[in-house]
């Protein structure tokens, strides 16, 4: 069975932003994710432009999504607008960092 959007998002929980030490999904770095016939299209950002870990995070996202059975193509679109802010974190991540809702 081909993985769906939730399967890919679950897999991307294993990719962390090394500086914050938390997964990129709960940090809110993944803006959009669509799966269509084994092709994944991801729109995402970084916590700051010029992030030294950018290449590693993008490579990690590609490798983790591509490693899922049935995924044949991964396309990542890196965007800077809208800019990321801590407000984009999930409740779980906010609780981890002590950020009030």
């Amino acid at each position: 069975m081909t993985p769906d959007r939730q399967d890919v998002l679950a897999a991307l929980h294993e990719v962390i932003d090394p500086e914050l030490g938390y997964n990129i999904v709960d940090l809110g770095l993944v803006y959009e994710l669509a799966v269509d016939a084994g092709a994944v299209k991801i729109t995402m950002t970084m916590t700051t432009p010029g992030c030294p870990a950018q290449d590693y995070i993008l490579s990690g996202v590609y490798a983790r999504a591509r490693s899922l059975p049935g995924i044949s193509d991964v396309d990542i679109n890196l965007v800077w607008e809208p800019a990321w802010s801590p407000q984009r974190m999930t409740s779980i991540a906010k609780a981890h960092f002590g950020i009030q809702e």
């Binding site: 090394p18 030490g21 590693y56 990690g60 996202v61 983790r64």
Partner: peptide, 9 residues
């Protein structure tokens, strides 16, 4: 990253 378990900084 994305290929194996890695520690946090």
């Amino acid at each position: 990253l994305g290929r194996a378990s890695v520690p946090r900084v």
